[in-house]
């Protein structure tokens, strides 16, 4: 009984999901992930924030206390507005998929019943956040130092993708050296030995000690 149902619905669901993936992603994770590696000025949130914050001094003054020079500057209303909007969009997208999955009824809940409830909750909470965006003082602006974060994420992704192809050792050493020397401004004569040593220890621990089948060269 179950199999035919699944077959019948599979193409439709798959198609919907795929299209859904662009608008909302299976989750915000993916859509926001796409945002950050673009650099310190992701489309949407940050430029808006950076732009408005200067003008919108209200939230600012209370956000970054003078006694803490290291505190990241606070983000303004626009950031929270965008946060709320993104959350609502995720909720709306997820709700569309839930409708497609089949809402069922209270006496016979379908696969979409629960996702529909949860995505509606997401939608409403997102709208509330957007509506109250002026009242939040807990967001930080993404500063231009976030270039480092973006570079870190990109190199990490590349290294991880290389691991199944060439083993984990070389990408790991390269990753460690990049993070230490480029992102962390350590000297190469320090970072290279540490990187090699760390990878050797990880190799010994995981491959030999714990017998985990990590993709490897040696």
């Amino acid at each position: 009984m179950m199999a035919p149902t699944e077959n019948k619905n599979a193409p439709a669901t798959g198609g919907y999901d795929r299209s859904g993936d662009h608008s909302h992603g299976p989750d915000a994770a993916r859509s926001s992930a796409g945002r950050s590696p673009n650099g310190p000025e992701p489309e949407g949130a940050a430029p808006g924030a950076a732009g408005t914050v200067a003008a919108d001094g209200t939230g600012e003054s209370s956000d970054a206390p003078a006694s803490d020079p290291d505190a990241a500057p606070g983000a303004g209303r626009a950031t929270n507005l965008v946060c709320g909007a993104v959350i609502s969009l995720v909720g709306a997208g997820a709700f569309a998929v839930a409708l497609d999955l089949g809402l069922g009824s209270l006496s016979r809940p379908g696969p979409g019943t629960w996702p529909a409830i949860v995505s509606l909750m997401l939608l409403v909470v997102g709208l509330l956040i957007a509506a109250r965006s002026a009242h939040f003082t807990d967001s930080e602006r993404i500063t231009k130092d976030a270039v480092g974060v973006a570079a870190g994420v990109i190199t990490l992704t590349v290294a991880v993708q290389l691991m199944p192809l060439v083993g984990f050792e070389l990408p790991s050493v390269a990753l460690l050296v990049f993070w230490m020397s480029v992102l962390g401004q350590e000297k190469l004569r320090l970072s290279v030995p540490i990187a090699v040593l760390t990878v050797a220890v990880v190799h010994l621990t995981f491959v030999h000690g714990l017998a985990v089948p990590v993709p490897r060269l040696f």
């Binding site: 179950m2 669901t13 999901d17 795929r18 859904g20 299976p26 997820a94 999955l101 809940p109 629960w114």
Partner: peptide, 19 residues
């Protein structure tokens, strides 16, 4: 919502997997 990703335990339907 993230917890619903994958096969539905009741109907076996795939949810939010994007293929």
């Amino acid at each position: 919502l993230l917890a619903t990703v994958g096969r539905d335990a009741f109907t076996g339907e795939l949810r939010y997997t994007a293929g």
